[in-house]
Design a protein around this nucleic acid. Sequence first.
RNA 1: GCCUCCGUAGCCAAGUGGUCAAGGCAGCGGACUUUUAAUCCGAAGACCGUGGGUUCGAAUCCCACCGGGGGCACCA
Length: 478
Amino acid sequence: MTTTPPDPSGPDDVPFAPAGRYEVDTLAADAREAADGTAVRLAGRVMLWRAMGGIAFGQLQDQSGRIQFSLRKNDLGPEQFKAWAKSLALGDFVGVRGELWTTDKGEKTVAVAELTLLNKARRPMPDKWAGVADVDLKYRKRYLDLLVNDESRHRFHVRTQVIRTIRRYLDDHGFVEVETPILQAAASGAAARPFSTHHNALDRDFFLRISPETYLKRVVAGGFDRVYEIGRNFRNEGIDSSHLQEFTMLEWYAAYWDYRDNIRFVRELIQATLDEVLGTRTVTFGGQTFDFDGVWPELDYRDEVRRVTGIDLHEIRDVDRLKAAVKDHGLQGDKELADQVSYAGLVDLIYKKTLRPGLVQPTVLMHHPVEMVPLARRSDDDPTRLDMFQVVVNGWEIVKAYSELVDPVDQRARLEEQTELRAAGDDETMMMEDDFIECMEHGMPPMSGLGLGIDRFVALITDAPTLRDVVLFPTLRE
RNA sequence: GCCUCCGUAGCCAAGUGGUCAAGGCAGCGGACUUUUAAUCCGAAGACCGUGGGUUCGAAUCCCACCGGGGGCACCA
């Protein structure tokens, strides 16, 4: 009992109506583990097809992997066998029903009793050995990349496992998942150029969020003590192997925690995620090995800048003296120097040029100068620095976190400084948000929040050289 | 935005001034009853990204444009 094979005249001119549904009871990966003689029904794509005179072998691929299937002339009769041998093509979707057996070469195989053509592929598959090598094609036709490239398929499976594991971990620790606006009247929570758009019904411009930060704090002010959001942020900046214009960020906020609680918590979260997804806390990336086990070293931001550059940020507190110091130490070209109008911008530039590339193993870099982040809390024992840290791996920042500023007086003053810097020509300042300060005036519990770049983390643990390899459809020109 | 490299058939890929632009996979015709990128035989498939130019002659050299990679700048 086999459906009639189509006219074997080639994939492009075969009239064929796709089937409606097919009853599947086994996945390829499970079938490979099942005992000979087990009756199975599977469906998937034909990825290999070798028809000989009296027997034919193919490989069927479904979401779980591949399994071989066989057709025999003796079982089907010569006409049926020949018709299938000539008509079945790579890329076709088939349903197979039959019993499992193991070939002489030890390959688990479905002996097909019934073969059903579910749909034809009207265009050819990529080269079955070389796969999709052209990176342009790989991103534009990701479906082909996923079909033929095991490495790509694996990365996206890891990505979903990472997100699922993180979500479960946070849920288990009393966090509540929430959603906050992507269309925001003021792009806040980070220093970055936003995308802007127009809301027709309200007849006003909006920004795509660069961060959910101030909205998540509003939720905490509303009594949700532990909240998190996993979602897309957008930053209208350059694209490279560690930056995408839309990227996925995990942010959480916990009332009554400080940044020290988050140093511990994020380490335990990452280690638990690695245990669950990879089964190891050591990952290989670009030939290097990153060890996430144990307690990660903690380095003081200003001490490290001084160690690497000789510039003492404890002592140098204003932009003019800092520019002079940079020049004295021969660090920068004049143009980049002149472009920086703010202390924070220049400090950040120095850090990115000199210190960050050297932070390869998981490192906690902490106590940034107070000018760096207007939403973070000053340290009680040193008001020139922040209760803040970043986790850097491979020179990539994968975590940024701090004790939150919940004092509306200090908050207003810090954002006003930002406005002044903007007027002076710094276009990466944070926007004033009166509504947010008003929320703070109503009262906000002490809290600490944290952001983790999901794309970067997944890229690091799947040895993906660029973030485009862990995003299904990266932005390209048309 | 700037610099630089790349674009040859559905896919992979040789060819860097000179007879009809290699080869492989897929597809087409044929052989083959245990293949593992099956093998073997046969036929076919390319206005060499697009448009100009140089030259007796251009896939090859030059210019512009389109698309992509890498680097710089900007950012997490």
